[in-house]
């Protein structure tokens, strides 16, 4: 993870109020789950939520225009994880014919139990608004919340066509 700078002043606290007060889109959606998936073996029902998502389609009240230099095409989504939520480890998938950059920005200072694991490293000691870029777009990563406070992080995928 490459640290690019702090953009705390760019964050609109109204976004955080909206995220904290309104439910996001549950991920995964039930229709996206393979009914033969191990998740069903474990839980016997569809009851595991990786995170709640807020994005440009789902959240009309959050208008987000990055202020840092970036590829001209991008999509963003905000991840909210309440206590106990856990995303399985994964690699992001990218469309061919593009070059991508992946960004990660916490909307809070680091809290013990707020888990973001990039490769095998726990990311800690960050501040609200710190902007990181993935060194490797295909890095294995996952996140979770083992604390008693809600975890909120902005994700951006930016690209140029080649």
């Amino acid at each position: 993870m490459k640290y690019l700078g702090n953009y705390c002043d760019w964050i609109n606290d109204e976004w955080i109020d909206i995220i904290n007060s309104q439910p996001g889109k549950r991920v995964p959606q039930e229709q996206d789950i393979d009914k033969n998936d191990y998740i069903f073996d474990v839980n016997n029902s569809f009851n595991h939520v990786y995170y709640e998502q807020y994005d440009s389609e789902y959240s009309d009240n959050i208008k987000l225009t990055p202020s840092w230099p970036m590829y001209s095409n991008f999509e963003w989504w905000i991840v909210k994880q309440t206590t106990g939520m856990l995303i399985p480890m994964h690699q992001d998938e990218f469309e061919s014919g593009r070059i991508h950059k992946r960004y990660w920005m916490p909307f809070q200072d680091y809290t013990p139990g707020h888990i973001f694991l990039y490769e095998d490293k726990l990311i800690t000691d960050y501040k609200k608004g710190d902007l990181f870029e993935f060194d490797d777009n295909l890095a294995v990563h996952y996140s979770g919340n083992a604390s008693y406070s809600t975890r909120i992080v902005l994700q951006i995928s930016a690209w140029e066509y080649v």
Partner: peptide, 9 residues
């Protein structure tokens, strides 16, 4: 811990 289980700090 089965997959998706997470205990708190």
């Amino acid at each position: 811990f089965m997959p998706f289980m997470l205990g708190p700090m």
